[in-house]
Amino acid sequence: MDLSRSGKESGDIAIPVREVKSSRSGKGTTAPPVPTTIRLGQGPSPAAGWGRGIGIIDLILRICAITATLAAAAVMGTTDQSLPFFTQFFQFQASYDDFPTFTFFLAGNAITCAYLVLSLPFSIVSIVRPHVIGARMLLLIFDTIALALTMSVASAAAAIVYLAHNGNPGTNWPALCQQFNEFCPRVSGAVVGSFLAVLILVVLVILSAAALRRI
């Protein structure tokens, strides 16, 4: 059986039938080939277009998450305030590295930001080739890990910020933000930025799962 394209349409396949000889008569008779046309689907697949749209949204959200985690890490890493007490030689000082939780916060957001930068090529591959399962599966797995890391550091830092703002009368912990009026707003803003990155990562995980379901 020979396969050939019929006409100018790339989606048509013509299947000619070989010559058939009749055994009833003494002489062989030749039957003309009968082309059979099978019409294939033409145009881009709707699933491919849908997956490409998800890939574009994924890329934009990753850039936003990079900005949020980078800003959170930068603000936390540059937070420092000194309060003069009696003389300029005797001061109270508050810095992010005085709190192990804030150091953990800085490291966690930096790791997430670095991962998101490295994931951009895989996101671009998902746009160019939306049917590739491997790239989307890797993004889903590592996005989930990054989400867990960012959520943990943001939650731990939020607990310290709450104590800094309100204190704890039961344990005689004073509210530090009454004195350090520049330190607390900066660390609070860093925590808000980190929670924004958490929200974006949640959306990224949902998009990756939806894309895998449609492939």
Rank of each mutant, 00 (worst) to 15 (best):
M1H: 12
S4H: 15
R5L: 12
R5M: 12
R5S: 13
S6L: 11
K8T: 00
D12Y: 15
I13L: 13
A14V: 00
I15F: 08
I15S: 00
P16S: 04
P16W: 04
P16K: 09
V17Q: 14
E19R: 04
V20R: 12
A31Q: 12
P32Y: 12
P33V: 04
P35D: 02
T36P: 02
T37E: 13
T37C: 06
T37S: 08
P44Y: 05
P44D: 12
S45R: 02
S45C: 03
P46R: 05
A47D: 14
A47W: 13
A48D: 11
G51D: 02
G51A: 10
G53V: 03
D58Q: 06
L59S: 11
L61K: 13
C64A: 15
I66W: 08
T67C: 02
T67Q: 07
A68P: 00
T69S: 14
L70S: 14
L70T: 13
L70C: 07
A71G: 08
A72R: 08
A74I: 00
V75W: 14
T79Y: 13
T79W: 14
L83S: 03
L83K: 03
F85A: 10
F86W: 03
T87N: 02
F89Y: 11
Q91D: 05
F92M: 10
A94K: 10
A94C: 10
Y96F: 12
D97N: 14
T101I: 05
I111R: 01
T112R: 10
T112S: 13
Y115K: 08
L118R: 11
S123R: 01
I124C: 02
I127K: 07
P130N: 00
I133T: 15
A135Q: 09
R136S: 12
M137F: 02
M137P: 01
L138K: 00
I141Y: 01
A146Y: 00
L149R: 06
M151C: 07
M151K: 06
S152Y: 02
V153H: 02
S155E: 06
A156Y: 01
A159N: 07
V161K: 07
Y162Q: 03
A164V: 00
H165L: 01
H165N: 06
N166D: 03
P169C: 00
P169M: 01
P169D: 01
L176Y: 13
L176M: 11
C177K: 03
C177W: 06
C184D: 05
A190G: 02
A190M: 02
V191S: 00
G193D: 04
G193C: 01
F195K: 05
F195P: 02
L196Q: 09
A197W: 01
V202S: 06
V205Y: 00
I206D: 09
I206M: 10
A211T: 07
